[in-house]
Nucleic acid binder design. Structure first.
Lengths: 201, 201
DNA sequence: ATAAAAGTTGACTGGTCAGTATAGTCATGC
DNA sequence: GCATGACTATACTGACCAGTCAACTTTTAT
């Protein structure tokens, strides 16, 4: 018998990956179990429903990625560099995902959140919450950039919402076009939008 | 017996509406037929598959909305006004949809396109095609704005891609947050992004 | 008038869906 | 050694899925 966490975490990881790669509606609990090499009974031992798995899987994914975000957005790092690094890591992640699955996959929270937004409130609100968590990093970086005068934009909250929409929109377009090229201009587009005065290379 | 077009068009319209409101995966052919008051056999008389209906429904929706876009983006209209009007009509459409269905629904092509992008090539490419059609209006308006000097942006193609991503991203966020407020700043955000010098009111 | 074509009907198929039932296995504590 | 509770295995349920089929009705062309 494997340890509790191994089985559960395998389900979380496999479920998240499969749904990110295709969609919530097209991935069945059986698909997840088969791919994870775990029986259905175990699935329903750990999760009350497919939707519950998705909520937990999103939380788990965020938990794993938060340290990286915290490091990237450390006050130690110049604010504009934080945003540049975010753009670069988004591109690298998308590239890696695309190589692994043969498709550009876009933002997992946004894809599944948008898909089920109008009929699964638990997933919708989790998706909203995590997207908002990401936005706060951008907001604080822009606020710091404003204080050091390296940016022309005035309102960090409004600007962070716009930058977030821009990133989400570009990832959406990249997924629909199945083309990473869409994301190539991301860094300079964002920098240009916030009116970055000095762009470190 | 109803005329051919009535039954088929009813299926196209009902199918498009239902899927826009929820998702491709969560709406069944039976749902569409039941809502349209039409038998399943008739569905498969007109469409070879559910995916085929979606492709045709997107084309039909675009066909219906093209005249409005052509009017809005007429060379008769000052270029910045064209873009303003686009933002306003997007907001009005989203508001109307939200009132009718009780949810913010976002962009139909983007929602369904993103959902099935990685496993239904016909829908993905149609979605890409129609999003690209919309983008061309923006591109030509920005190009005209550049020529009349009412805008600081330099490259109409690049700018149109960014504006499109911004609009798509905002509609995605509005759908996930189920909140029209997200869309309120759309017009000024876009105007600000392209560096509009004179903003007509 | 008639026959072909176009459209309609609803029952049907076989498979898959989310979720359940139940019996069994294992680690641990006493 | 045995009781307990966490975990696993597998068969199962009933609903629903996309899609089929053949009989039927209406329109249209001749």
């Amino acid at each position: 018998m494997k340890k509790t966490c191994e089985t559960k975490e395998k389900l979380l990881q496999v479920g998240f990956d499969l749904i990110w790669d295709s969609s919530y509606g097209s991935v069945s609990v059986d698909d997840i179990c088969k791919r994870a090499g775990i029986n259905k009974g175990s699935f329903y031992h750990f999760f009350r429903s497919k939707a519950d798995l998705v909520v937990e899987a999103c939380e788990e994914y965020w938990r794993e990625h938060r340290p990286e975000m915290d490091r990237m957005f450390s006050p130690q790092v110049p604010p504009l560099e934080r945003i540049q690094n975010l753009c670069r890591i988004i591109y690298a992640d998308q590239q890696q995902k695309a190589e692994k699955y043969g498709h550009v996959c876009g933002c997992p929270y946004a894809s599944v959140g948008s898909e089920v937004a109008t009929f699964d409130e638990k997933i919708r609100s989790k998706s909203e919450e995590l997207m908002s968590s990401k936005r706060k990093y951008i907001e604080s970086a822009i606020a710091d950039a404003i204080r050091e005068g390296s940016v022309t934009v005035k309102d960090p909250v409004a600007a962070s919402y716009t930058v977030q929409s821009l990133l989400m929109g570009m990832m959406l377009e990249a997924r629909v076009q199945n083309d990473l090229k869409v994301l190539e201009g991301m860094e300079s587009t964002v920098m240009n939008f916030i009116g970055a005065k000095t762009v470190a290379v």
